[in-house]
Design a binder for these strands. Structure first.
Length: 590
RNA sequence: GGGGGCGUAGCGAAGCUGGUUAUCGCGACGGCCUGUCACGCCGUAGAUCGCGGGUUCGAGUCCCGUCGCUCUCGCCA
């Protein structure tokens, strides 16, 4: 079809363009028909331009204009007119001008759309995903997809400038069933055998280090067959990165430099040149979780000493049994009243993470304690108040339980308070490092130790001697990067010593034969002069989500899946033909 | 697998303790309108109230079951 191709886009024209004859291509965003005069807002990726069809317009244009409907794709040829001052629309990029239509071509028509394209679609997520092609037309989605592009481009620029090579690794790889569940791909050529989609390019990038590509990165798609969450999809994108001859701090400072530059470039946001570091122990003890939102300070307080002096038997028993008692101060608030109902809501948040209850007391006038469990603290009020740096109207909340439960429960209370008290500035971005993670955790169900992160992370030097005797105490050269309460990157210095690697396998209850089967190719590579190396992998989707102020990763992925792993647009996953199954040597179990 | 929330017209919502013909906005359709920019005004159509069963004289509303969506715990090296 012959049609007029655009000479300008819909976000471009200004007063200075007045008088020009232009062609615009775009979608009919809104029509305002006043009888004698008609306004058409024409939209494309770049903006919206007002087109006028007035009394003087050619008859053919007037007739065609009457036929237009929302989301028709059209071409307009017209003359740029400067609007008189009184008609300038300051809310539009192109509000200084309008285009007087001389010719209109309908490039394609649209059926009645299921929801109106607006700044943000107000349709339910399910509907938005079914008609994702329409949802993506909204300004909000367009902006987020653009931000994502610029974020990735800026990362590529920075790393290329630092001598990194971007190297692709296969997405059909060997299944190594640790960690998350693998997505499997049946092999046609090798009957009964399967590829797996990578949970991350972990082993391949380590092998690239053995190959001498000492600075590698990749914008890598990763696949984990686990239940989705607001910040988790079946497939997601990581900046996968690895370097040789580096120590932990080299990786951390590279990331700091990277994000300082990228945030400046794509957000015009100035980050500090280094990020705060918390050890894993500190993070849990102080904030209750390993991904604290440090935009606000609200922290947990260890109250074991004062509990010992109190008469609160329940808590004392917990201490005697090796548990942990902590508290948090909910600061006095004009807006939020600490009613019974609200305390119950906080308690519910704590219970999700295993707390049996949430004890409380109020700080009264003249440094007194009221209500709740305050009667058990007679005589030590001053100590409690000092400990929390509390003032009248503050509420003190306590959990006593196993250390992890206490931390996690109060961490959840902290997050709820932060949300309800609006403590976090949505325009602020606060990074921090969590370092010194434990290398192993004990799997109660299976009765053996397993890697807390993955099995290729280096134990810290001072634990090398006692590795096997006391795995629980071993800290690894592991680090997470946290942004506004989300884990946005995770990495470690890797093991590059075959014997040490075998020792780790053994602690994780993996027999030599089994290790050989699964990771033999890595161990083989390690026989030929592997360099010391380490890396990290920031999650692209999560970071763009946070940067764009969203709380769901789906808002920054063009075609995401829903929480059941279904793509409502193309209705995948879908059944396949018997023929396909036969070729793959598969049969479906009823 | 567990817990919370939701499901009413194409879309988004209201519908309190059960009670006539299920309401509103957007959108659609018809009409009027020469300066709007979320245009305005008049009118019209459009709903097996997710589905199945039950209680009742009477169910969108109550009960049981079921399906779907969503958030979340578990899970996510």
């Amino acid at each position: 079809m012959e049609y007029k191709q655009r000479s300008v886009n819909c976000g471009q024209l200004r007063q200075a363009d007045a008088g020009k004859t232009v062609v615009l291509n775009g979608w009919v965003h809104r029509i305002r028909n006043h009888g004698g005069i008609q306004f058409i807002n024409l939209r494309d990726r770049y903006g919206i331009t007002q087109v006028v069809v007035g009394e003087d317009a050619p008859q053919a244009v007037k007739e065609l204009a009457e036929d237009l409907h929302m989301e028709y794709c059209i071409a307009i040829e017209g003359k740029v007119i400067a609007r008189p001052d009184s008609m300038i629309n300051p809310n539009m990029l192109t509000g200084e001008i309008e285009v007087e239509a001389l010719e209109i071509q309908i490039l394609s028509t649209s059926e009645v759309i299921p929801f109106v394209i607006d700044q943000e679609s107000d349709a339910k997520e399910d509907t938005r995903l079914r008609y994702r092609y329409l949802d993506l037309r909204s300004q909000g989605m367009q902006e987020r997809i653009k931000l994502r592009h610029e974020f990735i481009r800026s990362i590529r620029n920075f790393l290329s400038g630092r001598d990194f090579y971007e190297i692709e690794t296969p997405t059909l790889i060997r299944s190594t069933p640790e960690g998350a569940r693998d997505f499997l791909v049946p092999s046609r050529l090798q009957a009964g055998k399967f590829y797996a989609l990578p949970q991350s390019p972990q082993l391949l990038k380590q092998i690239l280090m053995v190959s001498g590509f000492d600075k590698y990165f990749q914008i890598a798609r990763c696949y984990r067959d686990e239940d989705a969450r607001g910040d988790r999809q079946l497939e997601f994108t990581q900046l996968d990165l690895e370097m040789s001859f580096v120590k932990r701090d080299d990786v951390l400072s590279l990331m700091e430099d990277l994000f300082v530059e990228v945030f400046k470039e794509v957000m015009d946001y100035t980050l500090p040149s280094t990020f705060r570091r918390l050890t894993w122990d500190e993070a849990l003890n102080t904030y209750g979780l390993d991904k604290p939102d440090l935009r606000y300070d609200l922290h947990l307080v260890d109250v074991e000493e004062v509990v010992k002096k109190s008469s609160f038997g329940t808590f004392k028993t917990i201490l005697e049994e090796g548990g942990s008692i902590k508290g948090i101060k909910a600061p006095f608030s004009e807006e939020l009243h600490y009613t019974r109902k609200y305390i119950t809501a906080l308690e519910e948040a704590a219970k999700v993470y295993g707390a049996k209850g949430l004890a409380w007391m109020k700080v009264g006038p003249n440094r007194t304690l009221d209500g709740g469990i305050s009667k058990f603290f007679e005589g030590v009020e001053e100590e409690v108040i000092t400990l929390f740096d509390a003032n009248e109207g503050d509420m003190l909340l306590f959990v006593g339980d196993a250390w992890k439960v206490t931390c996690a429960s109060l961490g959840a209370v902290r997050i709820k308070l932060g949300k309800d008290l609006n403590l976090a500035n949505p325009k602020e971005f606060v990074f921090c490092w969590i370092i010194d993670f434990p290398l192993f955790e004990f799997n109660e169900d299976e009765g053996h130790w397993e890697a807390a992160h993955h099995m290729f992370s280096m134990p810290q030097a001072q634990y090398l001697e006692t590795l096997e005797e006391d795995p629980g105490s071993v800290k690894g050269d592991l680090y997470d990067l946290v942004l506004n309460g989300y884990e946005v990157a995770s990495g470690s210095i890797r093991i590059h010593d075959v014997d040490l690697q075998k020792k780790i396998f053994k602690i994780c209850n993996i027999e030599e034969k089994e290790a050989e089967e699964r990771f033999g190719f890595l161990l083989n590579a390690f026989r030929y002069g592997p360099p010391p190396h380490g890396g990290i992998a920031p999650g692209i989707d999560r970071m763009v989500m946070i940067m764009s102020g969203q709380s769901s990763i789906k808002e920054v992925i063009a075609f995401p899946k829903n929480s059941a792993g279904i793509s409502p647009m193309d209705d995948s996953p879908s059944p396949v033909d018997q023929e396909q199954l036969d070729e793959l040597h598969l049969c479906i179990k009823e």
